[in-house]
Computed example of a mutant assay.
Amino acid sequence: MPAAAPSLAFADGKILLTRPGGGVGLVTFNNPDKRNAMSLEMWDGLGQALVALRDDAEIRVVVLTGAGDKAFVSGADISQFEQNRHNAVASEAYAQRSAAQRALLADYPKPTIACIRGFCLGGGLQIAMLTDIRFAAPDCQFGIPAARLGIAYGYDGLRNLVSLVGPSQARLLLYAGMRIDAAEALRIGLVDRIMSQDELLPATLDIARTIAGNAPLAVQAAKITIAEVLKDESRRDMAAIKQIGDACMDSEDFREGRRAFMEKRKPAFKGR
């Protein structure tokens, strides 16, 4: 069995990439002194980590989490606002610099899971909403404080929020700038499961390894098809759905899955 690839650090150590095994890559927001608030450098580092894991054939699922137990990501680094977001032109330049990383996560070819502890606010919530699945600890706090800061929350973030919780709950969160706890987030569909603080990361990694152990083309087919279902009917790429479906049926993994079932053993999928 090949040796595990070394851990990597980006953004002066504020973004960490580790490989905990089982086909899983782990990205950690490592700025606990600021409750993992995102600086521009951290956005750049996040993109570098995601590209590294995307291009690693051994990695099939990516988990995102925050260092410590105080925050996933508490939002943007407010200390950079005076320099980088002091007016509309500067704010647009700031948004453009992080846009590539958000787009990368939005269209990521591998399943992604957010493992959330503590504060998950503003841009941090946007990151979580861009992942496929969100697991949370009971003490989490979610919110979008844009109205309290005098800034507008972007279209992409709002589109994802509305798709998860609906327009009325999105209005309540945005208009009031209120925070909600994990139980309320689960009730309205913002997160998918609540786990205890101690079991959250181990259980998340176990689920990630379960996904990684399934046929990669079949998982990819589910990811692609669900993404198309969420689009307006006129914008759906039905050809892409058929293409990935045909690829599954013609794959070595489909044959391996049938053989493993008949032989009552665990399949060894190769993603082809």
Rank of each mutant, 00 (worst) to 15 (best):
D55C: 06
A93M: 02
G150F: 11
E228D: 12
I244V: 04
D156H: 08
L173W: 07
S168V: 11
C120W: 01
R159M: 13
I194C: 00
R193H: 04
D206M: 02
P111M: 07
I241K: 04
L201H: 00
Q101Y: 10
P267F: 10
E58M: 11
P2E: 12
S91A: 08
E58S: 09
A37V: 02
L200I: 00
G143D: 03
R35P: 02
Y108A: 13
A176F: 09
G177F: 06
S196E: 00
A95W: 12
R54D: 05
Y175V: 01
M262W: 15
T131W: 05
D192E: 14
P167G: 11
A95H: 14
V27K: 01
T18R: 08
P138N: 00
F142K: 07
K264I: 13
L16I: 10
V24W: 00
A239L: 12
I133A: 12
A103V: 15
I244F: 09
M1I: 06
I244M: 00
D237L: 15
L105M: 09
G13W: 10
N160R: 08
P20T: 05
Q96C: 14
A215W: 02
F269T: 14
R187W: 09
G150M: 13
N160K: 09
R159K: 10
R102E: 10
L158P: 02
D44A: 12
V61Y: 01
L174S: 15
A76C: 13
I59E: 04
R272G: 06
L190N: 03
D192T: 13
G23R: 03
M195D: 00
V73M: 11
N36G: 08
K14F: 05
D192K: 05
P20Y: 03
L190M: 07
E263I: 10
I188V: 11
T28F: 01
G13A: 12
R19V: 08
V62K: 03
I78Y: 14
D198L: 00
S74T: 11
M38N: 02
I116G: 03
A218S: 08
